[in-house]
Amino acid sequence: MSGSPIKVVVGKPGLDGHDRGAKVVARTLVEAGMEVVYLGLRQTPESIVAAALEEDADVIGLSVLSGAHMTHFKRVRALMEEKGLGDRLLTGGGIIPTKDQETLAALGVGRLFGPGDDPDAIVDYIRDWVREHPREDAV
């Protein structure tokens, strides 16, 4: 891998209680050489996007297990557009039915991963996406 490390903000929106999944993913990304800003539990879409903005993250990763994925992903994506982060990747994981994934994809949300997916698949996906979407200098 060349260039600077990919920077990812990982957070867990909503009130549901544990963040094991999000931490596992965060660790996997760190082991793959990425710089991961871990936000922890009980984030709001606003706090996640505000953090990603200050961190100049290339990627936002959400872990949503509560079933409220439609709300959270939609809201985060909308805020990203609003705050000028529309050129960054929004991805994440949870138990998300294919038809919901399709709806979200149409809104600009990237690939979403389920509990059965190989964590390395996330790494590859993020790397490929960032390579294919070089960031512009201009704000």
């Binding site: 991961v36 706090s47 200050e54």
Partner: peptide
């Protein structure tokens, strides 16, 4: 690996969105 786990924001979530503070 060159990677880094940065967890400081977990304890610094009281001022996200606060214009008086810029955190990195």
């Amino acid at each position: 690996t060159g990677g880094a786990f940065m967890g400081d924001r977990v304890r610094m979530d009281k001022f996200v969105g606060d214009d008086r503070i810029f955190m990195r």
